[in-house]
Amino acid sequence: MIAILKREFNSYFYSPVGYVFLFVFFAASGLFFLTGPLYTGVADISSVFSMMFWIMMIIIPVLTMRLLADDRRLKTDQLTLTSPISLTSIVVGKFLSAVVIFSIGVLMILFYAVALSLFTESMNWVGIWGNVLGMMLLGMLFISVGIFVSSLTENQMVAAIGSMLMNFLLFSVELIAAIVPFKFLQEALYSISVFSRYSQITSGIFDFRMILFFVSFIICFLFLTVRNMERRRWN
């Protein structure tokens, strides 16, 4: 698992993908920091976190698109799948490599918070840590979705667009729920709404059930990925 994690992490910087991801992440968060806390003069960076939802929805698929799709296209999966390691450690290794890159981006937002705290005494650090945790959970959820979609195809572009659609679907569950006429179905859809939970976190409401919600979502998608790779061997 460590070997896979290391290789995948390094490979982000062999190609432009890692740099592009971090550039867009830094640029977007910088812009939101500028238009949010700096223009309004309010020492609260939670707006940066909530705006980043949209950016993450689009750029995390770029981070995950090649993780499994490329292995299949280049036939390097013949190396990893015939090595004495389990499918789970391959998938988790790849998952963690994307998580590490993503964390570098999140660290940058923390840097804004530190910069802001130099000019004010009323920094809400608890709220910021809550936001960071929420963002990490959301990012990991998108990454697990991306890995799952990447395991379905050999084509990176298909994987990227597919996971963007999946992310959009996860977001729009709430919109769909609003117009669904059946109470039961509506509640079911609300109960899996990612966006409402994330916006709760960014608005300062924090609940351990939310952590559980995200973690189970992530595990579910990683599990589906492993099962899908297992299925391919049988076909």
Binding site: A3, R7, L74, K75, Q78, L79, T82, S83
Partner: peptide, 27 residues
Amino acid sequence: GYLPEHPPLYTDMTVWEYLDFVYSLKK
């Protein structure tokens, strides 16, 4: 030890990095 029909090479690595990766992959 398996050499498939298409050698499963990560072409963005150097030969040594690649063998080093295989070394740790195979524990």
